[in-house]
Amino acid sequence: MQLHTREWGPSDGKVAVLIHGIMADSRCWWRVGPHLASLGYHVIAVDLPGHGESPRAEVYSPELFASSVLESVPAGPELAIGHSLGGLTLAVAVERLRPGRAIYSDPAFRLPRVEGGAPMTDMMAQLKDVTIEQVAAMHPGWTAEENAVEIEMLKLWDPRTALSLSEIVGSDHTPEPIVPSLVQLADPSFLVSPEYAKDLEAKGFEVRVVKGAEHTIHRHLFEDFLAGLDSWI
């Protein structure tokens, strides 16, 4: 599936690929993309299937997300960053994409269940029609601009992406660190426990925690997000 993309920076620059999380789209990188462009990158941010202006599908899966990214961006980029579902997507695609460096920002390698046993993805599907006031209450550290971006992204989001992913809740998509790989974590992360973080380090990942950051690190604490990528971008 060919995806809609948003681009920043010089066309002849080293390529950076950005992959957003569930319910979002390429607009969530509105600060990250220009910053990477200022460092000389040609930045390509995708809208995953069912998100933003990309096509819809009847059923969504990690492989559909990964294969669509591979179809839509150049192979062998200098840098690839995936947040949450984007981290899961990058994990599935990384062996074929072969970026110079892979950054997984609070990645959903393992999708959990919420209290009571229901898939977290089912709960996400219920957020399709939240108001901007509800967004502000859920993300008290976000700016007014981030809240507005969230509402605009939700308008174009297909909640079937979340419902489809309920099929993989409980499975493990942890990749091999076949390229230099950083896992950047929220504080605390509801997706990567301290024990799991230690397992990732033993596996060969570098793991860094962004103190005080919520799940959407790049949207909550932008400067701290960048500081947490020191020497990686």
Rank of each mutant, 00 (worst) to 15 (best):
E95S: 09
G33W: 11
D12V: 05
P112F: 07
A37C: 14
V183K: 01
G212M: 06
S181P: 03
D106G: 06
V92T: 13
L111A: 08
G82Y: 05
A186H: 02
A45M: 08
T174D: 10
M1W: 10
P112M: 13
D158E: 05
H51D: 15
G228M: 00
L90K: 04
V17Q: 11
V135H: 03
R113P: 04
A24G: 09
E167C: 08
D47A: 02
S72M: 09
K14L: 15
A24D: 15
V43F: 12
V169R: 01
G204M: 07
L39I: 00
P159G: 01
E115H: 07
P112D: 12
A137C: 03
P177F: 13
V179Y: 06
V17A: 07
I44F: 08
D224C: 00
V135Q: 13
P99A: 09
R98G: 05
I22F: 00
P140K: 01
R160I: 09
D199W: 10
A45H: 04
P175N: 06
I103T: 07
R219T: 04
R31M: 12
L200A: 12
E95R: 06
L163M: 12
S231W: 15
L3T: 14
V192Q: 02
T174Y: 03
K198S: 15
M1V: 12
G86M: 12
P107Q: 02
G100F: 03
G100S: 13
V32N: 04
A16E: 02
A125W: 06
P175E: 10
T143P: 03
A45T: 15
F205N: 05
H20E: 02
H218E: 09
V15N: 00
A91I: 09
A213I: 01
A57F: 09
R98Q: 15
V46P: 00
T174L: 02
S171H: 03
D12Q: 11
V59K: 08
R160C: 02
L229P: 00
M120W: 13
R96G: 01
V114N: 10
G50Q: 04
P188M: 04
P175S: 08
L79Y: 11
G212V: 05
H220D: 15
S189M: 11
S11V: 14
I178E: 12
Q134E: 15
S171N: 14
H215M: 10
L200G: 04
S189P: 11
L185W: 09
M138Q: 14
V149G: 00
P119I: 13
H218G: 03
I132D: 11
T89R: 10
P77W: 07
L154I: 08
M1L: 10
D158V: 03
G170L: 01
M1Y: 04
L3I: 09
D230Y: 08
P77H: 06
S26G: 06
T174F: 09
E95C: 09
W232K: 00
I103F: 07
P55M: 08
E133R: 11
V149D: 13
A136D: 11
H218S: 01
S61F: 08
H20A: 06
V69D: 06
V207F: 05
T5F: 02
V149I: 15
S84N: 00
V183A: 07
S61K: 05
G82R: 01
T174Q: 11
T5D: 06
T216F: 14
Y104M: 01
V192H: 06
